[in-house]
Design a protein around this nucleic acid. Structure first.
Lengths: 340, 340
DNA sequence: GCTGGCACTCGGTCCACCTGAGTGCCAGGA
DNA sequence: TCCTGGCACTCAGGTGGACCGAGTGCCAGC
């Protein structure tokens, strides 16, 4: 049993060493740096077992060992201690996020902050419309048959759509329509809103029915459209720091996948609030991400996440630190949004 | 005189060849590919002169010549013919931009389109607030002393700010305030708006004065704040295509500068509508951009640009093609915004 | 003023060689 | 049963020399 225990320590040491040095780590270096109480030869035996079990691998015969995805996974699940943020870091978070002037600003600052703390690529999702509640609906007449609908959610997100309406509208009608819609939808979430549409149309004065129906339809479309879930990305310059060589084959697909926001949004879709999700290397089904890890968590005050945020980086990353940073930033963002 | 003329043809051929092959170009290759009617030896003499005048340079003794910034500048100013877009490209632009659902969408599509057409990094600026006109001002009560002000401009841009007001407000007061502000500011641009504030406050009913003053102040702040000029960036993956080696020293500062939106915004500040601006290599005062060129133009229907858009890439780029693409996209974006 | 010829330069590539890190295995000792 | 020191082996990376070829500058001749 003692062997098993030591073997795990060896694995942990390998991960830590490799993450910080980026060099395959050999038995001698390990013995020298980590005080495991045994000789390099013993460590070699352990390493051979670990390799056989698939936790580590050799890039080539005469090199040290490198963790595999499986090795990182084990490390994350079982071996890494939570690494609390330093006081300076906590201060930095507060200083950075205070004074944000609107939602756009909050998320912009968050993504920069996260990129800076983790030195990875940071990703922040706008609060999902379908989980937000309607705070206010505004209608602005553009032309006789066109209205601009502006939706303001309780998270501070603002969406706009042009609605083509079948009947001509004057200022008075628009005002009436506006109060009708706000009375019906204010405070409602997507699910409730869609329930209400039928009743609302029925109960509306006959001359307004067509209008109500038109605007409501657009509203529902807007709320339900998942492609409109926006993403803020930052710290891509961090990709150009590490690995150096064979760039076109590692960094480029990653950048492309990030711009293809859908990929990241799909990953985000699974995050829960307060539980940090880590997906490592090959665990990501999207090909461009198979060399990368993704650390993410939902933010939001309630039981359901309003949106997600996280970092993307090489599998060789400081998981403990990044998990801590991601969690901390998510907590602050959740607080900020709850306040407003 | 005949010599001068041929020398310029040689310069043009060097630029074109280098841009398309990325190899320093020698006299023999030039004679073979460009039908200049003279022998390599003669071309060598011309090249020697061009080098002495600073238009081209040799990376090392036994290599061909490469254009200098000065060479590209001369090429752009005097040698490059306008390269009209293909029918397919025009179609692509239309297909790509039609069906955009709001401003965010228009600009997002534009940046992707531009990145795809030019295979460079594309940059699109949101319409500058200070040059936009107020379409509508909306006020939403958040709490007794807090209002959410939502500004909608004629270009479709939406900005929001929380306003702390000194007096308690009820729904009625807010409605009154809203119509007062809209009557005063609707259709006004920044300059006019700031003129009107004084009168408005004076002419307002006494009990509303404090409110009017508070909201107006925030409005002006919002309009004038240049840091709030937003930027959409796309196609960064294109940076990882070309040069391959010495990435950390070429690509990383560029990515950092791009995220540091201020740098790009400053460049954009100078663009005029319809005249494409090209700044090449060392002409850019910002250090990270000294190895890059920036092709930009303003968009907007009137005489003053609403905002700018452009592409950033290595000095070794297809200037003629990129200029054409940037100009075409700007024209379409201008049209789309004018329509809405 | 253009051209062909010629000597020269020098970066890139290939190859042979060496070095050192790291391993696996084995026999001996606790 | 497990750990340890020793030893032979492997192999990536670095070094240095030779060679090749692209490209140049210069010069004499047309």
């Amino acid at each position: 049993m003692a062997h098993d225990d030591r073997r795990l320590q060896v694995l942990r040491a390998i991960v830590q060493d490799y993450v910080s040095t980026n060099d395959p780590v050999g038995s001698k270096a390990l013995a020298a740096r980590y005080d495991l109480g045994v000789s390099p030869a013993t460590i070699r035996n352990d390493m051979a077992v670990l390799e056989e079990e698939g936790y580590i691998t050799q890039p080539h015969t005469s090199a040290g060992r490198v963790p595999t995805d499986k090795g990182y996974r084990f490390f994350v699940d079982r071996l890494s201690a939570v690494k609390p943020l330093s006081v300076a870091e906590r201060k930095a978070i507060e200083r950075f996020l205070d004074g944000a002037v609107d939602l756009h600003d909050v998320l912009g600052r968050s993504v920069r902050l996260l990129a800076q703390l983790t030195r990875q690529v940071a990703v922040v999702q706008y609060p999902t419309l379908s989980r937000s509640a309607v705070r206010h609906l505004e209608l602005v007449p553009l032309a006789a048959h066109r209205l601009l609908m502006v939706l303001i959610t309780d998270t501070g997100r603002v969406e706009q759509r042009v609605v083509e309406v079948p009947v001509e509208t004057d200022a008075e009608t628009v005002a009436e329509l506006r109060s009708l819609l706000n009375a019906a939808f204010a405070g409602a979430k997507l699910a409730e809103a869609s329930d209400k549409v039928g009743d609302l149309v029925d109960s509306a004065p006959p001359q307004l029915r067509a209008l109500v129906a038109g605007v409501s339809a657009t509203l529902l479309e807007t709320l339900v459209e998942p492609s409109e879930d926006r993403l803020v990305i930052g710290g891509t310059a961090n990709l150009a720091r590490g690995s150096a060589l064979d760039f076109p084959h590692t960094v480029r697909p990653l950048l492309e996948a990030l711009e293809e926001q859908v990929v990241v949004l799909r990953l985000m879709a699974e995050v829960g609030p307060s539980t940090v999700t880590v997906s490592i290397g090959e665990e990501n089904e999207h090909e461009a991400l198979t060399g990368a890890s993704f650390v993410s968590v939902g933010y939001g005050s309630g039981d359901q996440a309003l949106g997600g945020l996280g970092v993307v980086g090489p599998t060789r990353m400081d998981y403990a630190g990044n998990i801590a940073a991601v969690r901390a930033v998510a907590r602050y963002v959740g607080q900020l949004l709850a306040e407003s």
